[in-house]
Structures are given as C-alpha cells and as structure tokens.
C-alpha cells in the first residue's frame, strides 16, 4: 500500500471498525446500538458543556499521543506516557502551589516544570536504552508504576495541600489557571498549544535534519548508523522529548482543568494515546483528528454508561482491537537487544 492510500485506509478503516465493535459491545450489554450511539453522541457533543469536555479529553490525549509519535518515529516504543504525564503534572502542581510570581510567568514556569519532569522520566528509559541497551518497552512501563508510587508518596505527605482531603496538592491561585477557551466549560487554551505542537512536529519530521535523523534511525537503524547518526544520543533525546511532551500535557491538566495535582488525574490517557498515535498513522496532523475521535469516545463513554448501561470500558477493548489490526503495518524497526552502542 502506498502512503496516501494508507492514510485514507487507516482512519476510515478505524471508524468502520469502531462503529461495528461498539455496536457489538452495546448489543452484548443489552442495549440497541441506536440508543447506545445516541447516548454516546449526545453525551459527547450534545451541548456547549459536552463539547467542552470532549475537547478537554482531546487535549489530554493529544499531548501524550504526539510524544509517543515522536518516539515511534525513532523506532522506540514508549508505553510510559502515562507515568511521564503524571510526573509532569506532579512537578507543575508542586511548583504552582508555592509560586509567588505574576500569572503568565507562573503558568509558563509550570509548563516548563511539566516538560522537565516528564522529560526526566523519559530520559531514564532513554539513558538505560542508549547506555545499556535495556529494552525501552519494559523500562517505560516499569517507570509508570514507579511514577505512580512516588507521586502517591509525595502527595500523601510532603506535597499534600494543607486543606486537601485526599492525595492531592494545594489548589492553585486562580492567576495560575490557564485561560478558558470556551467560557463556562473546563476547556482551556491548552488545546491551542497542543495543536501548535502538532504543526511544529509535522514541520520537524518533514523539514529538519533532526526529523530526518529520527526517521532514519527508526526505519533503517543500520543505514542511519553507517551514515554517521549517533543512535545512542538520538535514542535518549527521542525518549526525553517524548516524555517532555507528555509531561507538558500533564501540566496543562493541572493548570487548565483540575487546578491542583491529584493522583487520579489521568484515566489512562497515556495508554489510549498509543491508539491515537497509531490510528493517526504517526502523522501529527492526522493524530489531531484521531485525538478528537477518541476524545468523543472518552467523554461520551461516561454518558453512554450512565444512560444506556453500556460499560464504558468497552471503549478500551475497541482501542485494543484497533491496535491489533493496525499492527499488520510495520512500525518498529526490529532491534535486537544489546546491539546499540
């Protein structure tokens, strides 16, 4: 299949597959697909608030999906976006709780803190891969659990807000809240940041030397190495950037939606984002569209569960099936353990 037909076949096939499988999941749950889909779409797009929530989910998925896409382009499978997002959010929330600078500067600092936190988390796996040849798939996943344990430890103790009931940091001063994009909803201008980032990545992949190196090391590592690309350096750089992007996403959830850090802030965005990146065919602009589609499922899923009694977890089964089907395309250049410098 050539590139253009792949792009059409991917998303279209995915949509058809989603509709068929969702119908099946609804029938199994004893609901007619008509009622189920009505509940889903009314819940996701039925009003100003619903649209706002769908775009909130879109934003939350778009950041980690773009991060995963970047690593994937370098042939690295990052399934640790969940942990990177969490650490980014934690850093942003912890910093935001103690800041005393003007609003815009504070927000900028929080986003940078998110990038640094998420980036550092990605860098651990990148360093392990580049230095020791450690499998990045296992490493990034292990780090998710380490991230969750440390975040819980910190917000149960030292970073816990003075008035917080559960495991969360203190509330942010309203001047550190990202401005609303759709007044009256939780949607913040983080969505615009995510879209701008997608454009930037599209340009980086297509037009820059770094983007070329990334793709070369992902698609033909041996050729890339012989042409003088430092694969080890590229590996940790790709995983660091990948984590940083997910980390910024976490920071925008803190600053834009929740206005504090909470250990429950991600219902698995980092994992759904893998499906988003793959359905988007690793093209940043298509990923934006895929994120919107999965955003509809995420936010409509809750309504579907409440009013049509279809468990929303059906969505995750469908994500998994889509990934399985898309696996028939080759994405990751096979790298044997321990061959990296």
């Amino acid at each position: 299949m050539n590139r253009s037909s792949r792009i059409v076949a991917g998303p279209l096939g995915a949509i058809v597959l989603i509709v068929v499988l969702m119908s099946l999941a609804m029938i199994v749950a004893g609901t007619s697909p008509l009622d189920g889909f009505r509940a889903l779409f009314v819940g996701a797009l039925g009003g100003r608030n619903e649209i706002g929530e769908t775009l909130v989910a879109t934003t939350a998925l778009l950041f980690p999906a773009l991060g995963i896409c970047l690593a994937f382009r370098a042939g690295l499978f990052n399934i640790g976006a969940e942990g990177q997002l969490l650490i980014g959010a934690l850093c942003a929330g912890a910093l935001g709780a103690v800041l005393t600078v003007p609003g815009p500067i504070g927000i900028t600092l929080m986003l940078i803190a998110g990038a640094i936190g998420g980036g550092a988390w990605g860098a651990i796996a990148g360093w392990m891969k580049a230095r020791f040849g450690a499998n990045e798939i296992i490493a990034t996943l292990m780090l998710n659990f380490v991230a969750a344990a440390f975040a819980l430890e910190l917000v149960s103790g030292p970073l816990k807000g003075p008035l917080a009931a559960g495991a969360e940091t203190a509330w942010l001063d309203p001047k550190y809240w990202l401005p609303a994009l759709l007044p009256g909803t939780r949607l913040s201008i983080a969505l615009l940041f995510a879209l701008a980032l997608a454009l930037l990545l599209q340009w980086v992949f297509a037009r820059t030397v770094f983007g070329y190196d990334l793709r070369a090391s992902g698609e033909a590592p041996e050729a890339a190495r012989r042409s003088g690309i430092n694969l080890g350096r590229l590996t940790w750089l790709a995983l660091t950037l990948s984590g940083a992007i997910a980390g910024v996403g976490g920071a925008t959830i803190v600053s834009g939606e929740l206005h504090r850090f909470n250990t429950q802030l991600s219902p698995g965005y980092g994992f759904t984002a893998i499906a988003v990146a793959l359905v988007g065919d690793l093209q940043p602009l298509w990923i934006c569209l895929a994120a919107f589609g999965f955003g509809i499922l995420e936010s409509g899923g809750l309504a579907m569960q409440a009013s049509a009694q279809v468990p929303k977890d059906a969505i995750h089964v469908i994500e998994g099936l889509i990934i399985l089907v898309l696996a028939a395309r080759r994405y990751v250049a096979t790298r044997v353990e321990g061959t990296l410098p």
């Binding site: 977890d313 089964v317 998994g320 399985l324 696996a327 395309r329």
Partner: peptide
C-alpha cells in the same frame, strides 16, 4: 508487528 499487536492484546484484556 508483534510489539504493537501485544500492546493491543493488553488493552483488549484489561478493558
């Protein structure tokens, strides 16, 4: 791609 397929199976089973 066995890695992608395995990731899909993980999501299917947990979900």
């Amino acid at each position: 791609d066995q890695i992608v397929a395995g990731t899909g199976i993980n999501l299917i089973c947990a979900g």
